[in-house]
Design a protein around this nucleic acid. Structure first.
Length: 500
RNA sequence: GGGCCCAUAGCUCAGCUAGGUAGAGCAUCUGGCUUUUAACCAGAGGGUCAGGGGUUCGAACCCCCUUGGGCCCGCCA
């Protein structure tokens, strides 16, 4: 049974799937797992005929933790302020929206369409007010829950609400001194003191309390989250207890998902953690493949993502599945996976990505590639073809291993050949010089004849030719390859090698 | 120290939430093909399912232990 199905099959009644990421920087591949897992669960519920909604919480009330490496030093003054109150790095709008917007764009192309809720707006609109009041009234009970379950000792002056300083704007530097009438009095390290209205965005709950409060306010019934929250004594454990004991709300069904690791490219994630930004991935991968990577494996298993050769294998795999589907040979699980991998657009007839990675290195115009494919009897919708061509280009220049790349050698680049091989090149040179038509078939014909004349094994002959032209043992189909390059360029090269 | 995930053919993995005599793709080998985009077609070899114990008529699949990898427990998923 498909993992998504088995997870939700026993659920009764209306469901609400919740996910959330704090928009504190560029959203990357790892974050994608959270939201895509949520989307997969949501869509699995629908496929199973259950009523469900799907929300994405942008935690823009979270404070800036520190000056991240990608931020200018001037952001030091903003550390501790809510993300929504900080100016964007480009000066336009808020910090949180700056990182949220491109992420939303990425989600759109991935066909993920949750209801987006900004936590800051929940505070602003007073949605948290009542529950904050409860939290403060029952702070001693909450304190003991946090201490006993997490095993962590809280400071004596601990208070379950962080007021935002009206002067310096920080929410991590105030100390509560009093509470009454929905107002928290505070002193700030900046010297200011004042009152914070719990029905406004003038402060926030600490994470471990805010999380269960969100469940209650938004009626969340199922939520995927990373194992950092899922560890024993972690925030899910304390959240569950707080939800059930204090808020009288049944904690959502948890789905603790494993992490995504990057493969290849050496120590790509040794120090900084995994971080291919979401946009970067979508620049070389069709959204269907990203979805496929997340959908095919149970969320509880880790995924090793290989953007290099492994990516092509994943493409192949997906294309095979699509083919099976068109022949109605998919198993039930495969049907689920395929359905959940689709990104809300027709992607039945896929341009062969692997093939494109080669074509893209030979031809530079999209029209040319379209023609070639047409000659091969394959036609695709122009939009998807254009996109995929761009992606293949990007993949070649950024992720392709050297063995998959090639470029024409210069006229006088040195090359190491045996005597026999050099004779072969001379022969080919003469034939190509005299060739009446510079077309693929004829060119290929010349190569075969030349190789035949010297009793070389075909593979050895071709290897010599490729070595001369691109410095590799293998290359794209010779006739097509040479036909798009001006003849003089080829003959000059061959002539020089022959004369050496 | 605590927790989670993983360990199945040379490689990448499926199968493990319906327990019933081991699967796919790639690689290798053989044959074919007017020979090469990581070509294509047909076929073959290859695994005591990490190790040990238990439950069962029967376990890769359930339970326990061991070993080896990976990851998480200072709110970066």
């Amino acid at each position: 049974m498909y993992w998504g199905e088995s997870l939700i099959k026993d659920l009764k009644g209306k469901q609400k799937v919740s996910t959330g990421i704090s928009p504190s920087g560029p959203i990357h591949l790892g974050n994608l797992r959270e939201i895509l897992t949520g989307d997969i669960i949501y869509k699995s519920l629908l496929m199973d005929g259950k009523e469900s909604t799907f929300i994405y919480l942008a935690d823009d009330m979270d404070p800036l933790r520190k000056v991240y490496p990608f931020l200018p030093e001037s952001y030091t003054e903003h550390v501790g302020k809510p993300l929504r109150d900080i100016p964007a790095p480009d000066g336009k709008g808020s910090y949180s929206e700056f990182y949220l917007n491109p992420f939303m764009e990425a989600l759109k192309s991935l066909d993920v369409k949750p209801e987006v809720i900004r936590t800051g707006e929940l505070y602003r609109d007073g949605k948290f007010g009542e529950i904050i009041n409860t939290v403060i009234e029952k702070k001693d009970e909450i304190r003991s829950i946090l201490e006993s379950i997490s095993g962590r000792e809280l400071e004596p002056q601990w208070f379950p609400y962080n007021a935002r300083c009206s002067k310096c704007g920080r929410i991590n530097s105030t100390t509560a001194t009093d509470y009454g009438d929905g107002k928290v009095s505070y002193n700030c390290k900046c010297g200011n003191s004042g009152e914070s209205d719990i029905y406004r965005e003038e402060g926030k709950l600490p994470w471990r309390i805010e999380w269960p409060a969100k469940w209650k306010i938004l009626n969340v019934t199922i939520e995927p989250f990373g194992k950092d929250h899922g560890t024993v004594g972690g925030s899910y454990d304390t959240g569950k207890e707080i939800a059930e004991k204090i808020f009288n709300y049944k904690a959502p069904l948890p789905l603790i998902y494993e992490r995504i690791l990057l493969k290849g490219k050496g120590a790509m994630h040794s120090s900084t953690g995994v971080n291919i930004p979401a946009q970067e991935i979508l620049s070389f991968s069709p959204p269907e493949i990203i979805r496929y990577v997340m959908a095919r494996v149970p969320a509880t298993r880790h995924v090793e993502f290989d953007p290099a050769l492994g990516f092509l294998s994943t493409m192949d795999e997906f294309e095979r599945l699509l083919k099976m589907e068109s022949e109605k040979k998919t198993s039930e699980d495969q049907h689920w996976i395929l359905t959940l991998s689709k990104a809300g657009r027709a992607y039945d007839s896929v341009p062969d990505y692997r093939h494109l990675t080669t074509l893209v290195q030979i031809y530079n115009s999209e029209e040319r590639i379209r023609e070639i494919l047409k000659n091969e009897g394959k036609e695709y919708s122009s939009e998807i073809l254009r996109e995929t061509i761009e992606m293949a280009k990007k993949w070649v220049q950024t992720y392709a291993p050297d063995s998959s790349k090639f470029s024409l050698k210069g006229e006088k680049d040195p090359v190491d050949l045996s005597v026999e091989e050099r004779k072969l090149i001379c022969s080919l040179y003469e034939k190509l010089e005299k060739l009446d038509q510079w077309v693929p078939e004829k060119i290929h014909e010349c190569a075969r004849e030349s190789i035949g004349r010297f009793n070389l094994a075909p593979a050895d002959g071709f290897r010599a030719i490729y070595r001369v032209l691109i410095g590799n043992d293998k290359g794209p189909r010779l006739g097509f390859f040479l036909s798009v390059i001006p003849r003089e360029k080829i003959t000059k090269r061959l002539g020089w090698v022959c004369g050496e």
